[in-house]
Design a protein around this nucleic acid. Structure first.
Lengths: 214, 214
DNA sequence: GCTTGTGAAACGTTTCACAGCA
DNA sequence: TGCTGTGAAACGTTTCACAAGC
């Protein structure tokens, strides 16, 4: 029963960008915006912006443009960030701790309510900037996920541990995964996974720079 | 004079994935791989793998497949990670320090050789896991970039500071940017930028999960 | 028998261009 | 006049299907 079954993937990715830009514009005191203005700010054509938004409804007014706060509300509803998403983080290394401290996630409604690790030497330790969370053993995932109403799992462990952690997460009832480990996860079809491989982004820049030089 | 002008963007993004998977397979002792095997590991069709690789040359042997180490070498050459890329990191907060400590970047040839920040209270401080780097003032970017042969800039500062930092980086001679700030950078056309907005990846998972539920 | 490389077909996305409305 | 929403055209990417090679 998908709400937006025929919406192209690229459109959904850009919707996140539109929302981010709209929030910035609203903070800057802007009340309305045209597809051209929104597109220019993001390097997208005005036609693209209109087509994208039209997949979800008719939000604009000819001659005027889009009302910024209204479009923000709509985009949040569509993306699901009008609600709070409780997440479990596995891996309390440098990256994991950076995620805990990052306010941008909470601001979007993502709350890390459990932090787990395999390393016995850090289990039980309180985490800075975390509202008093302490590190739990990964093995408690099956109890913690239902008990804390967790829907999203965050993987921030070394590559070789990522697959077993993902398996355990899904078994525990997690509905979607954000994966920072540099490895392709094998999950059942239809399970939402977003992968962020830092090194790959650097590689893409390196390729483009090399292209320019030659 | 681009070497690979007509190669689709998605193909270049997948080439990074192929390389990562091939490195894992080589570590696991695999010597040859077919397009089907490589594709299955990544959720891509065999035809897609072959088309992608064929944009860059003829690397395979009918009836056999691809020689793993040879394909790794080729992919590294194409992506540019057969060389070392020296990078400057601006922003020594939680995320910045996680990047400094992350070995995966160095393993791919990306070396952070300068760390800068605006915050006077941390300037001069030595950084853990950094080979003895100390934090420099952002204002020294114009001297540091040429002096240390830096080609890539990494932005890990709060959103409002990202644009001025980007401007300063490009003025200082940086050739490409990896941007972790949740804001669209305005850069001259053709300047390679890769943007990583952590919150957006979470949002995409939330959307997909919400789609399943309804 | 198995697998590549590749034209051709199928498919999906973006851009165009304009009717209709403020 | 300015701007949206949208069919239709243009463009780009993926999949198909098979000849050729191991």
């Amino acid at each position: 029963m998908p709400r937006y079954a025929n919406v192209p993937g690229p459109t959904i990715r850009r919707l996140s960008l539109y929302l981010r830009q709209l929030e910035a514009m609203w903070s800057a005191g802007r009340d309305t915006v045209s597809s051209k203005q929104l597109g220019d700010a993001l390097g997208v054509t005005d036609a693209q912006v209109r087509k994208d938004l039209a997949y979800f409804g008719q939000f604009g007014r000819p001659g005027i443009g889009y009302r910024v706060p209204h479009l923000i509300d709509q985009a949040r509803m569509i993306l699901g960030t009008d609600q709070t998403w409780r997440a479990a983080l596995v891996g309390a290394g440098n990256l994991g701790r950076a995620l805990i401290a990052y306010r941008g996630l909470a601001r979007k409604g993502f709350k890390i309510v459990a932090v787990l690790d395999r390393d016995a030497s850090i289990i039980g330790r309180p985490l800075p900037d975390s509202d008093g969370l302490a590190v739990l053993p990964v093995s408690t995932l099956p109890e913690v996920v239902p008990a804390k109403n967790i829907r999203i799992g965050i993987i921030a462990v070394p590559a070789p541990e990522a697959q077993p952690v993902a398996d355990l997460m899904l078994q525990a009832g997690v509905q979607g995964i954000v994966n920072f480990a540099p490895v392709a996860l094998n999950v059942p079809p239809g399970v939402p996974v977003s992968a962020i491989d830092l090194a790959i982004h650097f590689e893409q820049v390196a390729f483009q720079v090399a292209e320019l030089a030659d």
